[in-house]
């Protein structure tokens, strides 16, 4: 875990991590949220809508921005204020996602950092884009 404080954060700083989406993650996300939409649960249904497999929950992908902010950038001292997401491309089970954040603003008065977030799949396609605002503890 990183421990960046406000004074150590600068525009342009980046952090990233990679993980692969598994069926178990999908099962756990369903268990937590109860989202039983067939696009996420039923491969045959998803195929009927033109997808090669069950579509990964957009909010499962977006939840990785919680990890980005809380563990990597800024890390320990973070408290999320806002995450605005755009789901540009579908994600599928087995995709390997690289979650990256770049600091675009540091506001010392409001002790808030703005981070441009993006998630790319193994083919280099941006699947989720986000603007993340996080407060920093003193």
């Amino acid at each position: 875990m990183n421990h960046y404080t406000l004074s150590r954060l600068q525009v342009g700083m980046t952090e990233e991590f990679t993980l692969t989406v598994t069926e178990e993650m999908m099962d756990r996300f369903y268990a937590i949220t109860g989202d039983c939409s067939p696009i996420h649960m039923d491969a045959q249904y998803a195929a009927g809508r033109g997808y090669p497999g069950r579509v990964v929950y957009g909010m499962l992908s977006a939840s990785l921005f919680s990890t980005l902010a809380g563990v990597y950038l800024p890390g320990e001292h973070c408290l999320l204020h806002q995450v605005d997401c755009k789901f540009a491309q579908p994600v599928f089970i087995g995709d390997t996602l690289t979650v990256k954040g770049t600091v675009t603003e540091v506001n010392e008065t409001f002790r808030e950092v703005t981070i441009k977030g993006q998630i790319q799949n193994q083919n280099g396609k941006k699947v989720v884009r986000a603007v993340i605002k996080a407060g920093l503890a003193q």
């Binding site: 204020h81 806002q82 603003e105 506001n107 008065t109 409001f110 808030e112």
Partner: peptide, 24 residues
Amino acid sequence: SLEQINLLTAMEKKFGIKFKLEDV
């Protein structure tokens, strides 16, 4: 309080100014 930060940071950008803590 969160929207207050969003409003004030938008004003900083619009007017090209920088608020200090004692200002706000």
